[in-house]
Design a protein around this nucleic acid. Sequence first.
DNA 1: GTCTATAAGCCGATAGAC
DNA 2: GTCTATCGGCTTATAGAC
Lengths: 206, 206
Amino acid sequence: MTNQHFSTKDRILSAAEDLFAKSGFAGASLRQVTSVANVNLAAVNYHFGSKENLINELFKRRLDELTAQRTKALEQVLKESSVTLESVLEAFVAPALTLAQDRGGGQSFVRLLARAFAEQDQRLRRFVSDNYGHVLKEFAKSISALLPHLAKEDLYWRLDFVSGALTYAMSDFGMIKKPPTLTEEQHRRNAARQFVRFAAAGLRAP
Amino acid sequence: MTNQHFSTKDRILSAAEDLFAKSGFAGASLRQVTSVANVNLAAVNYHFGSKENLINELFKRRLDELTAQRTKALEQVLKESSVTLESVLEAFVAPALTLAQDRGGGQSFVRLLARAFAEQDQRLRRFVSDNYGHVLKEFAKSISALLPHLAKEDLYWRLDFVSGALTYAMSDFGMIKKPPTLTEEQHRRNAARQFVRFAAAGLRAP
DNA sequence: GTCTATAAGCCGATAGAC
DNA sequence: GTCTATCGGCTTATAGAC
């Protein structure tokens, strides 16, 4: 009945994204996932091998896309004649906020991402850092170049605070309720603008 | 052998704090908790009634203390002749950072707090907001008074970012590795200083 | 590829002896 | 207060029919 035109694999991934975001990896069972996906219980192990592998493929699908968009946006910014702190931050946050408002599961995924960071789960942290750490380093390098007088130690502290503000704000997205007068697109752009202003000012602190 | 001089109830609370911080509420079982606490399995239900109630009492114990210290620190600041944005932020963050470096379980609790916020668990959010929301409102009021030209909407966005930066930085505490030349006390004071500078600048953004 | 049936084990909670 | 034993239910994973 629901999404019968998507493949079994895709239906499992989408249902898992929603349920894990709601209840956590330990909190949501494969039985719930297959029930929501309208798929047989055994299908998960047939297609993914195990629950843990399902989780990994779920992260891979979204993060590959997210980091590709961030890289593209940063390259675009660095081509311009006048690179500002604001434009670099914009390149970092815009793809994430687009994902955060995607109804097709991206919304759930962003909350899942926040949860994954709050969890001290080293296995998952390692997976993210190994596969996507290089993109974060590119951004850090660009930001550092724009703040030449800032000591490295101060920079690292501030980048940590910026990550936290973004992660939290995204996972919480929707708590700052969208006024009914704004479209989702306007709300998204507003969030990006607010974040960029706040983060730029924080990074430039005396 | 371990902590035999603490009561059964306290040993359960401490073990639960550690294990829930490591594995999540659904991820850690009462069997693990009682095993680490060196206590019989049935003791949890005898002393706390249920797993859910154990979690609530665990939060209550720490948050009562944390909010009391924050309230006291804020009152102290507001008594002074010249109240600054920095001093209000300091009153908010100092008690939390003290807790984050407490070896007696507070360290685990801070990570648990970050996890609880990442989880969209409405039950827990409501518990925190109902019992401790008034303290957060006091701080918001004081900050608002110090930034009279800032629109309310901008203020709410920025307070959200500040909460995120703090939550994330505390849960991640120790990732920004303490240089061996600094004592824990010095590292804690350094973290507070870095956070206050970043948050104050972000809040003052044009 | 999809199904049923079931294995093997962990879960929270409780009854009842001491 | 603390123990053992156990209930009923849930979990992941798999074997084997179709």
